[in-house]
């Protein structure tokens, strides 16, 4: 027990939590935008898997992380178009369509992996700041700072991207005309339509944001873990959707949820590694992150009332 409460172990646990939270955060932020426009996407996990495989395979072949991330984004865009056409223009039931996207992503990413790779070979993981080509030297002294260094600077660029996206998405939703349109079509599409706001266009773009971030989340996951495998995400996309709900559709609470989920996971694994949680309790320990995160968010962000038009296809009459 005492071993856990040394500052360095606490810091290491926190730093792990932050890294762990990144794919969840990226996917959940994207889903937040989509849901605020009234579109639920249960296919996030499938898009993440496709993005993850695309990025992994690209890095395996080209050794370029940047290309890998771009491929992840591109896959998100393609899947976004598919999902938007089905749900916005063909008015398909969102829950079922999302599950369809998930199953497609799960099966197709595995198929591609089997055909193109077979046995997973680790690739270079995303470099932390100090290992960035060219500029890494600038960050080296920062990482050396006691405690703060490992906590704040021992991360890759996607970690910073994900957390900077929190204020960016907040700004997008609250301070731009697009964000205002998103909120309006998610709440009362008839009203928005009566003022000439195109519900279809607004939702289409919101879905694009969501799917691009899902693709990027998958890419980031694969490049953080530096491998790909069948069902690499293990349901991260579904937890991200849950984080959006329990985070009351607000980016900062969604971030808090992702961080808390990461922190509880990192802590329970750390405690198991230090024998604080006895063997035999691993099944219960494995459930704690979800339970604690949901409880905390329900208590803290409980003013939650979802977008009124969430999951409702819009037709004029």
């Amino acid at each position: 027990m005492s071993q856990f409460f040394t500052l360095s172990v606490l810091i290491a646990t926190l730093a792990t939590a932050i890294k762990f939270a990144v794919p969840y955060l990226l996917a959940a932020l994207g889903e937040t935008i989509g849901q605020r426009s009234g579109v639920l996407n249960l296919g996030v996990d499938g898009i993440m898997l496709l993005g993850a495989f695309g990025a992994y395979y690209t890095v395996l072949e080209t050794d370029s992380h940047l290309l890998g991330l771009i491929v992840g984004i591109a896959i998100g865009l393609i899947m976004g178009v598919l999902y938007a056409v089905v749900t916005v223009f063909l008015h398909a039931q969102q829950g079922i369509s999302g599950i369809g996207i998930f199953l497609f992503g799960l099966g197709f990413s595995d198929l591609l992996f089997q055909e193109l790779v077979g046995t997973t070979k680790p690739v270079k993981p995303l470099p932390t700041l100090d290992k960035l080509p060219g500029v890494g030297g600038i960050f080296e002294p920062l990482i050396e700072i006691e405690y703060l260094g490992p906590l704040l600077f021992d991360h890759n660029l996607m970690t910073y991207t994900a957390f900077l996206l929190v204020p960016a998405v907040t700004w997008l939703l609250n301070k731009t005309t697009f964000g205002m349109n998103v909120r309006a079509v998610g709440e009362n599409p008839q009203a928005a339509d009566s003022l000439g706001v195109s519900v279809a266009r607004t939702r289409f773009i919101a879905i694009m944001f969501g799917c691009v971030l899902a693709g990027l989340a998958g890419a980031t996951l694969a490049l953080q873990l530096a491998v790909f495998q069948h069902n690499l995400t293990n349901g991260i996309g579904f937890i991200a959707v849950a984080l959006v709900y329990f985070g009351a559709w607000q980016p900062r609470w969604v971030m808090a949820g992702a961080l808390l989920y990461g922190l509880v996971t990192a802590t329970r694994l750390r405690w198991q590694s230090l024998d604080i949680i006895p063997q035999g309790a691993s099944d219960i320990a494995a459930m704690t992150p979800a339970i604690i995160t949901i409880l905390a968010l329900v208590l803290l962000a409980r003013r939650a009332r979802g977008p009124a038009a969430l999951t409702k296809p819009f037709t004029r009459h």
Binding site: T177, N181, R183, A184, E187, N188, Q190, A191, L195, G196
Partner: peptide, 19 residues
Amino acid sequence: FMLVPTLTVAENVALGLPS
């Protein structure tokens, strides 16, 4: 009423107009 309850008065008025 064709209003978005979660938006402010000003937002409801500005909806659909260029900024």
